[in-house]
Amino acid sequence: MKKGVLLEIRDLHITLDFDGDDIPIVQGIDLELPAGKVLALVGESGCGKSITSQALLRLLPREVRISSGEINFRPTEDQSPIDIAPLNKDGKEIRSIRGNQMSMIFQEPMSSFSPIHKIGDQIGEVIQLHLKVTKAEARRRVIDLLDKVGIPDPEQAVDQYPHSFSGGMRQRAMIAKSLACNPSILIADEPTTALDVTIQAQILEIMRNLKDELRMSMIFITHDLGVVAQIADEVAIMYMGRIVEKGPVSEIFNNPQHPYTVSLLSAIPRLGDLSDRRKLTSIRGSVPSLFERPPGCAFHPRCDSFIPGRCDTQFPPTSQLSPIHEVHCFIHENTEKEISS
């Protein structure tokens, strides 16, 4: 593993068992999460971004499994990496990582808490499970955490039940819970999608502070390119189970190279060009179902740069446009050679 990399995914394949047939959901993705950075996994519904994040914690649904690949996790620089992929999903090893060194925030703060236990007890449980502390110490720590995520009057909030929290407050409590054991990686799956824009801004602010102050590394799953631009350092664009382009956030937004990335960026309404009210460039058709995956590059039926006989037969290899920017598309096949020659 490279220096400064906390998590490395190598050629990860995930399949869905559908009545005995193996349907590929994720087809060989490679990713690296550098320490202290926010990596955004971006794509439309069904692209495999959520499944990938669940695989990291071995939280996949029963009928979905990792069929091959490596997930190498190195909590600190001096430790040797652990491969999470082959671990028993209910075993001791993954349980000592899950919620402890790597934790997760979900989209629905409503359904992520038990309605019949106090907020403080639910967060305290995580602390007591992983760290050797007394109940009183755990409670003290919960109050600190609630305070850190901006919950007013944490001394009182700790004894409240989830129903008395608003959506935004629950999401804060959820972040507090995920931070309970000082994880080295935070995985956030659409953490702001269900929230109002003003609350979303507050949650993003909290997450940005975590990144700046605690040097927290995060994997941020979202379909909202506005949110990506505001929070991410690195971006990976996914389409039908594959990463089609990845690079630093400024490269992806200012210099997108994959036709899918280009179309996504021109399909979103922006405030910057309110005055000229141009028509949005839409992408024709829609994402095919997993059972009708187009051969070759799955985007080819919707792509304006489609090369017959090429795009529909083979998935394009990596074109390394620069040391930090890579794309999978045949239109860039020769670009790389020019750079290297």
């Binding site: 824009v197 003003t198 979303q200 801004a201 993003l204 909202d224 390119l225 506005g226 949110v227 990506v228 631009a229 505001q230 991410a232 956030v249 400024s250 937004f253 200012n254 960026l265 979103i268 922006r270 405030l271 910057g272």
Partner: peptide
Amino acid sequence: AIPEANPEQ
């Protein structure tokens, strides 16, 4: 609070 899709903004 609108997150504009522009990392420079």
